[in-house]
């Protein structure tokens, strides 16, 4: 459905991605994992069509995203950024209505407003629809942004893609799960979902597949059960972790115990700071 094929990317002479391929079918949630600077965000911007790869290509339902008209693309795939800052006093509801921009070319309709409201209900943000976006807390803003993105590709069957860049970074526990449940529902309705996450347990719980990046290369891909191993966490994330798989489930639980000793920060003598 959405597919990046052998993607290379170079910025100021440094190659930040090396022949990375990623693919999400309708109904799948593919989580991209990796330490800071592994190339997750670059891969994400390539998939969204914001930047063009130096080699390789990104396709959405078989259409090359760099050559497909932007307005066509906008009705098929929505992109949730890490954070949004607004310099004008738009209300939360107006922000969500912006998600309907690609559909409301001849002015907004009752249907658009109903979809915006339903998307806000799905992210539990209806309670503050009339408040100014910039007056909301970080988590509330993130829920409104999620609603905007959902509203953009709310209706339609197969052939939609949802790209989420750390969508849960400011959310409380309840809303982290709420958001990924909603992503699951979107997937069940024919969306292909690609999601960058830092929380390995959330990825393990909701991803149909995970892709692990390290220094611009894909180093692992598979189900969370296959990929999230003690060895991988040591190699890629440089943490010492235990993995448990509760009986009767296929969902691994990652319990990090701390950094591997080689990267341990120097210990301060007790009392040195007092």
């Amino acid at each position: 459905m959405i597919e990046g094929h052998d993607l290379d990317y170079v910025v100021s002479g440094i190659q930040t991605l090396h022949r990375v391929s990623i693919r999400a079918e309708a109904g799948e949630i593919v989580c991209v994992l990796g330490p800071n600077g592994a190339g997750k965000s670059t891969l994400f911007r390539l998939l969204s069509g914001e930047i063009a790869p130096r080699a390789g290509k990104v396709t959405l339902l078989g259409h090359d995203v760099t050559t497909t008209p932007k307005d066509t693309l906008a009705t098929m795939r929505a992109v949730m950024p890490q954070e949004s800052v607004l310099s004008f006093p738009f209300t939360a509801f107006e922000v969500v209505m912006l998600g309907r921009t690609p559909h409301a070319t001849a002015g907004e309709t009752m249907a658009d407003r109903a979809i915006a409201r339903a998307a806000m209900a799905a992210t539990d943000s209806l309670a503050y629809e009339d408040r100014t976006f910039s007056s909301l807390s970080g988590g509330e803003r993130q829920r409104v942004t999620a609603a905007r993105v959902l509203a953009q590709i709310w209706e339609g069957e197969e052939g939609r893609a949802l790209l989420l860049d750390e969508p849960t970074s400011s959310l409380d526990l309840l809303h982290q799960h709420g958001l990924l449940e909603t992503a699951t529902t979107m997937a069940e309705r024919g969306c292909a979902v690609v999601c960058i996450l830092h929380d390995l347990n959330l990825a393990a719980r909701y991803a149909t597949r995970v892709v692990v990046l390290q220094e611009g290369r894909k180093v692992a891909e598979g189900t969370p059960r296959e990929v999230l191993t003690r060895a991988l966490l040591a190699d890629v994330f440089e943490v010492d972790a235990r993995i448990f798989v509760p009986e009767g489930t296929e969902i691994p639980v990652v319990v990090p115990r701390g950094p591997l000793s080689k990267t341990k920060p120097p210990r301060l003598a007790t009392g040195a700071l007092l």
Partner: peptide, 20 residues
């Protein structure tokens, strides 16, 4: 009006919403 509203979200976001 529609394009400038989308632009408030940022250049990349407006692009994702199909605005030239």
């Amino acid at each position: 009006g529609r394009s400038l509203d989308a632009l408030v979200l940022g250049d990349a976001e407006a692009g994702h919403l199909g605005i030239p």
